[in-house]
Design a protein around this nucleic acid. Structure first.
Length: 876
RNA sequence: GGGCGGUUAGCUCAGUUGGUUAGAGCGCUACGUUGACAUCGUAGAGGUCAUUGGUUCGACUCCAUUACCGCCCACCA
């Protein structure tokens, strides 16, 4: 039989099992109609991504459930994969090219996409290799990529279908134009920074009148294409002007005065110029009032012909000159310094110019309705539940989704325009005479492929073939989605919509929003801050299990996790403890089997075994509840405290004594212990797979080709949960602790044997008859007891419920110090008793409180009075 | 500005339908290598549960208020 080595050699062990699991295809999932399935799709990480602590937490949670369910006999399918990450990938390739002094336009679109694929093959997907190291029990044969042929087909099918249903349309929209790199950029590629500008107060005169309104603007150069002046409908100052017309200075154009809620009465003058082409909010206002849209700023940030004499000028020059001209004409009321937030491009650091462009949109309102309903009805559950509020808030105010991106890397929009007629053609198949058509140059938002992920990964095709797709129908809908709450809009909501629209069923049953991992100071982990420890380093240093355990232990449902590397010690120490407990059991097991002095007589009616059975089963009950409720940290905490406190501190410590005292039953005792230990390994396997697999193999010969991950999860024996036994055992614990406390207070080391006398009542004598021996061995004392109340001389004592414990001392006892201790204790108990009495004498309490609460108070009162009486006798 | 959370021991956090002498880990103090574990053991110190009010026989727990902190969304002419 193998021995358990002194130290757990982490790295080679983890590598060994990673390889074993893959080689033996332990985690391959098949369609097995005879079994219940459990499926999870991974939130596809960016192909450009590298593993950070957040991923570790996210994937550990998924793995935990995959392993737990697998051990419960489910056919578990966990699908891995990656996202093509349009912007991020394109930027990587552009960067590569830039380092050689090449622009993407130089190589052309087709070649660029080829380079992107090459980049993906060469550098992409590190993150999945890293997930292997984490022990993620995914089915690698099912790995998917959002730009795979099948998934791309799904994207096209959905686009065309929505287009034909009229749910995809083309429209104008303000986009962020980066005049430096001459592209539009998404909101995520921008940042806001404070900029100091001038705020110009400009008079707009009413038509045929000396009356005027003053508008405040930072951008007078755009005023040529103002289409209205707006005031708040509740603003009495301007009510009389609404519906009238003002003359736009310089352009000399008539524009209406309109009323719109958007206008803030308090800001500036309370009058706003509406320039739909150059401001997103103005655009919305313009749409509400059916106002025309005209642009004056071009893509290279100069004014066009609407700028009249200022045509061709850069916006900053134009701003200055327009202001001067207005001043000359007497239109400027005043100019103020003004600091405001301005949007910049992450990429080029240039100021963003909002410009109008043609984009593709998904009309969301109608699609959102059923998606709201499935959450309202509880068919999809969110954990923690509070995120439903965020979900409803967004879904009930859902805006149309702009899905076109001005990029090359991604799914190119399946729309072609006729070169002569401009006719629009949209289909999954390109037009038959391609030379006459030009395909839309935009690609789709990356999320347009991700929202199909829960069914596209199983080969969904939007065709009759789906009816025969057994895998799709077996594994869909999935059971659990684990993701971060910040993509509840971007991803979760949209998957629900797509699932309902295309599978006619929800995409997942439970959604778990994992905690955000922050650093020790509560800051978000980020590359730029450099505060994110590399998980691979941590895994090397402490072990993968240690990191997994620690993160789950620290991550309560719904709160952020403050993590720093040092905290990984929690997990590492726990793994070490588990290892050593196993080692101790094995050493004894081998000793017992190898010697004839031990027998295998069954041991019956043993309180220690009854107690550990009770604790074991109640722990098992708790962790099942915790896991069902997604209270993962409670699961690890329950295991931690059971293993460390109950199993190691008490059960194993007692085992040492019991094996000596019951040599005839030693085999039965040690086998019982090993059985519980083996169950502990199974219960911990979902969170710490490597060390439990290793120990499980070391525990018994003949397991070479098996894995603990497909063993049965322990079943609860509820009838073994016994509160009376636990109470009785607690008495032993209390007595032992109290004796240790007396030793400790008087600096008597454990190796010094001493004498203890206990006094108790008639009814507790039997208890001491039974356990006195055990207690004395645990405390290294000679124990005697009686029902006497005479205080032995030269002793110190503790009073606990039902017992007075005297520790006899050799030398002189410091009676003053003793008294002090008792007086303090008496004071504490008296105030406690006062609290109880005030309740019990309160007639309202006695009338209203439930009887069991009153009974409990009376018990506490009696117990406290009893203790007090004994203590008082010592100080008088 | 809108929405959603949080505030419990020096630190990080539990405390699940209101009834415990409010718990854990780390840190701290004292002692200790007794047959697995110093990545350990034993014992101990440490909290008016952010504020103010309310509901209740009873509030860390429910309601309201204030203060501070955080997240998401929108970004103001």
């Amino acid at each position: 039989m193998t021995e358990i080595p002194k130290n757990y050699d982490i790295k080679p062990t983890e590598e060994k099992w990673t390889e074993f699991w893959e080689e033996k295809k332990v985690y391959h999932a098949n369609v097995r109609p005879d079994r219940k399935k459990y499926s999870i799709v991974i939130p596809p990480p960016n192909v450009t991504g590298i593993l950070h602590i957040g991923h570790i937490l996210n994937n550990t949670i998924q793995d935990l459930y995959a392993r737990w369910k697998r051990m419960q006999g489910y056919e578990v399918c966990w699908v891995p994969g990656m996202d093509h990450a349009g912007i991020a990938t394109q930027m990587m390739v552009e960067k590569d090219l830039a380092s050689k002094g090449i622009k993407k336009e130089d190589v052309g679109r087709e070649e660029f996409i080829k380079l992107a694929w090459e980049w993906k093959e060469k550098h992409g997907g590190h993150i999945l290799k890293q997930l292997r190291k984490l022990g993620a029990s995914v089915d690698w044969s099912k790995e998917r990529f959002t730009m795979d042929e099948g998934l791309s087909k799904a994207v096209n099918e959905v686009f065309v279908d929505l287009y034909k249903k009229g749910l995809i349309y083309r429209g104008e929209r303000i986009t962020n134009w980066d005049p430096e790199s001459m592209t539009t950029v998404s909101d995520d590629e921008t940042f806001y920074k404070e900029k100091h500008d001038k705020l110009y107060y400009i008079k707009y005169f009413l038509k045929d009148s000396d009356e005027y309104v003053t508008i405040a603007t930072t951008r007078p150069e755009t005023m040529f294409v103002d289409v209205a002046v707006a005031v708040n409908p509740h603003d009495e100052r301007y009510a009389k002007f609404v519906g009238k017309t003002v003359i736009l200075p310089l352009a000399n154009k008539e524009i209406p005065v309109i009323a719109d809620e958007y206008v803030d009465k308090e800001f500036g003058t309370g009058v706003l110029k509406i320039t739909p082409a150059h401001d997103i909010n103005d655009f919305e206002v313009g749409k509400r009032h059916n106002l025309p849209v005209m642009s004056v700023v071009t893509k290279d940030s100069t004014l066009n012909k609407y700028g009249m004499e200022f045509e061709g000028l850069n916006i900053f020059k134009a701003r200055k000159q327009v202001a001067e001209k207005l001043e000359q004409l007497g239109h400027i009321e005043k100019v103020e310094d003004y600091a405001h937030n301005v949007m910049y491009s992450e990429k080029s650091k240039a100021m963003i110019e909002p410009i109008l462009s043609e984009q593709w949109f998904v009309s969301m309102k109608k699609l959102a309705e059923p998606a709201i309903k499935v959450v309202e009805e509880g068919r999809i559950k969110f954990y923690p539940e509070m995120w439903t509020k965020t979900y409803y808030h967004w879904m009930r105010n859902v805006r149309d989704w702009c899905i076109s991106r001005q990029l090359w890397w991604g799914h190119q929009i399946p729309v072609w325009y006729h070169n002569e007629t401009g006719e629009v053609y949209c289909d999954v198949k390109p037009p038959e005479d391609p030379e006459n058509w030009t395909q839309d140059s935009d690609v789709l938002d990356t999320w347009f492929s991700s929202w199909l992920w829960p069914f596209s990964v199983f080969g969904w095709q939007n065709s009759e073939k789906d009816a025969n797709n057994k895998e799709l129908h077996y594994f869909y809908p999935t059971d659990l989605l684990v993701t971060a709450s910040d993509i509840i809009y971007l991803w979760v909501a949209r998957m629900i919509i797509a699932g309902l629209e295309y599978m006619k069923d929800i995409p997942f049953k439970d959604v778990y929003f994992n905690s955000l991992v922050r650093d020790g100071e509560g800051r978000k982990m980020s590359k730029t801050l450099g505060n994110s420890p590399d998980p691979l380093d941590v895994m090397d240093k402490y072990g993968t299990d240690a990191l997994r355990f620690t993160l789950i232990y620290l991550a309560p449902l719904g709160n952020d996790v403050l993590y720093d590397e040092k905290k990984t010690e929690i997990g590492r120490n726990f793994v070490t403890k588990l290892w050593n407990a196993g080692r101790f059991l094995m050493m004894n097991y081998q000793k017992i089997l190898g010697s004839s002095e031990y027998g295998s007589e069954p041991l019956d009616n043993d309180i220690v075994e009854k107690w550990i059975d009770s604790r074991f089963n109640s722990t098992l009950k708790d962790i099942n509840t915790n896991l069902n409720d997604y209270r993962l940290n409670d699961y690890t905490k329950a295991m931690y405290s059971f293993v460390w406190s109950d199993f190691c501190d008490w059960y194993i410590e007692l085992l040492k004594i019991r094996l000596d005292d019951n040599k005839d039953s030693a085999v039965s005792i040690i086998e019982k212990a090993m059985g519980i230990y083996e169950n502990i390994l199974k219960m911990l396997h979902p969170v710490i797979p490597f060390v439990t697999e290793e120990l499980w193999h070391l525990l018994k010969d003949g397991r070479e080709n098996k894995s603990i991950s497909v063993q049965e999860f322990p079943e609860i024996a509820v009838e073994k949960i016994d509160p009376i036994i636990e109470d009785e055992f607690q008495n032993i614990i209390n007595i032992v602790t109290s004796i240790r406390n007396l030793r400790s207070e008087n600096n008597i080391v454990f190796t010094t044997k001493c004498n203890v006398i206990m006094h108790t009542d008639e009814d507790k004598i039997k208890f001491l008859d039974t356990y006195g021996d055990l207690i004395s061995k645990m405390c290294n004392v000679d124990l005697s007891y009686s029902t006497s109340h005479d205080e032995p001389g030269n002793s110190i004592s503790n009073v606990i419920s039902g017992f007075v414990i005297y520790l006899l001392l050799e030398g002189v006892v410091d009676s003053e110090k003793q008294k002090e201790k008792y007086v303090k204790e008496i004071e504490k108990l008296e105030s406690y008793l006062k609290g109880i009495d005030s309740k019990l004498t309160n007639t309202k309490f006695v009338e209203n409180a439930p009887p069991e609460i009153i009974a409990r108070e009376r018990d506490k009162k009696k117990d406290t009075e009893d203790k007090l009486e004994k203590l008082r006798s010592k100080v008088t």
